[in-house]
């Protein structure tokens, strides 16, 4: 596939690539549109299998059900608050521990790495962790949604890898100019890590937004519940293996598919909007001109 002379015709490779990506998008979009359509359709029509791609008997009942409570708005606000806080905490703290690990010859490198690696595989479990958090007085405290999970060994490794890939020449140049580690971190590493920070921020936001388990066990006060937990109340997902369970389920009212679809869309929407903002950080060329000569 040689690009010898500047031809007007489109290179074959491009056709393959653009075409392939287009097919991929179709494969993804069709089911997505189907789910969105269900959320906007009438329950009966959905049961009768009439919904193929577009909504049938368009109505907002499902969404009205999801929005019906003041709890919804409060949960939404809580989720935004937790997402912001936990992302800030996570990015900051992970960066602070990853940078020293990326410095060659740092005396604490090995012990620190071992400390982190162990946490990647071994942990005490739900009950001991709960006891620790309880003893710290963090129950019913918004900080519990941000701090305990802020640092994961997995993320630290990724940050460290990225930091290590920044040409040492840049660090040395700053070092020669008399900068200490703090300054190097702030003025050299961070600005050049925009793609990394954007990615990890996105992951942190998504992770926080979808997580419900921590809120379930650490937040007793339902006014502090995030959206994910609120939505979980709307959809009952009980183990159906015992007749007694089935009986309780059948006693409660039916779980229409439209509501399930609507809750999913509602949860997805904000995150979908976050991504375009972060995309610009993935543009290449962040390092143009940074290394001279």
């Amino acid at each position: 596939m040689k690009m010898s002379v500047k031809k007007k015709s489109i290179p074959f490779g491009d056709i393959l690539i653009y075409g392939g990506l287009f097919l991929l998008m179709l494969v993804i979009l069709f089911p997505m549109i189907y789910i969105i359509s269900i959320s906007f359709s009438d329950t009966g029509a959905v049961s009768r299998g009439e919904v193929v791609l577009l909504p049938v008997e368009f109505n907002l009942d499902a969404y009205r059900y999801v929005f019906k409570d003041a709890r919804f708005a409060r949960a939404y606000g809580n989720s935004i608050f937790y997402a912001a806080g936990s992302t800030a905490a996570s990015v900051l703290l992970t960066g602070l521990i990853a940078y020293p690990l990326s410095v060659e010859g740092f005396s604490g490198r090995k012990p620190l790495t071992i400390l982190l690696m162990i946490t990647m595989f071994f942990g005490g479990g739900m009950i001991p962790t709960y006891m620790v958090i309880k003893n710290l007085g963090l129950l019913d405290n918004p900080l519990v949604m941000m701090l305990p999970g802020a640092i994961s060994a997995y993320n630290v490794i990724i940050y460290r890898t990225f930091f290590q890939n920044i040409p040492p020449a840049l660090r040395e140049a700053a070092y020669i100019d008399g900068a200490g580690h703090f300054k190097i971190f702030r003025k050299v590493i961070l600005p050049l890590s925009k793609p990394l920070l954007a990615t990890m921020s996105l992951f942190a936001i998504v992770g926080s937004w979808n997580s419900y388990f921590d809120a379930l066990i650490y937040l007793n006060d339902s006014r502090m519940h995030p959206l994910s937990l609120y939505l979980r109340q709307l959809i009952v997902n009980m183990d159906m293996s015992s007749q007694g369970m089935r009986d309780i389920m059948v006693q409660m009212d039916v779980n229409p598919r439209t509501i399930r679809a609507a809750t999913m869309i509602v949860a997805m929407l904000p995150i979908m909007c976050v991504y375009p903002f972060l995309q610009k950080y993935f543009a290449s060329g962040v390092m143009i001109g940074s290394v001279k000569g």
Binding site: Y130, M131, I217, Q233, N237, M238
Partner: peptide, 20 residues
């Protein structure tokens, strides 16, 4: 003064409370 857990997860929460 109610603490309410989602029906799907209530046993996890109760378990935890009893254990702690």
């Amino acid at each position: 003064d109610w603490t309410l857990a989602p029906t799907s997860d209530v046993w996890t929460v109760v378990n935890l409370k009893l254990n702690s």
